[in-house]
Computed example of a mutant assay.
Amino acid sequence: MKKLVLTLVPAFALSACTDVPLLGTPPWQRQAKPPVVSQPTEETLPAPDEIEIASLPDTGSAQPGSGGLLGMTVASLGDPARDGFWIETPLISAPGRGRVRYPANGREVKVELLPIEGPVTAGSRLSLGAMRLLDAPLSGLPKIEVYLD
Rank of each mutant, 00 (worst) to 15 (best):
A122C: 04
V74M: 12
G24I: 01
A13S: 02
E43M: 06
R125Q: 14
I87Y: 13
G140R: 02
E88N: 15
G84V: 04
R125G: 03
A94C: 07
D19N: 06
S38G: 03
W28D: 13
R132L: 05
A122I: 09
P27I: 15
I92Q: 13
V20A: 06
P10E: 00
S93F: 13
P80G: 02
G68S: 08
L69S: 06
V9T: 03
E43A: 08
D79I: 12
K143T: 04
I51Y: 05
G98C: 07
G71H: 14
T121I: 10
Q39G: 07
L133Y: 11
S15C: 07
G123F: 10
P103G: 00
L6H: 06
F12P: 00
P142S: 01
T18Q: 08
D79A: 09
R99T: 03
L14Y: 05
S127I: 09
T59F: 13
S61N: 08
S15F: 13
E50A: 09
S61V: 04
L56D: 04
V146P: 13
D149F: 14
P137Y: 03
D135I: 02
A62S: 11
S124C: 13
A81S: 14
L134T: 01
S66K: 15
R125E: 10
A13L: 14
P90Q: 06
W28A: 12
G65S: 11
G84S: 08
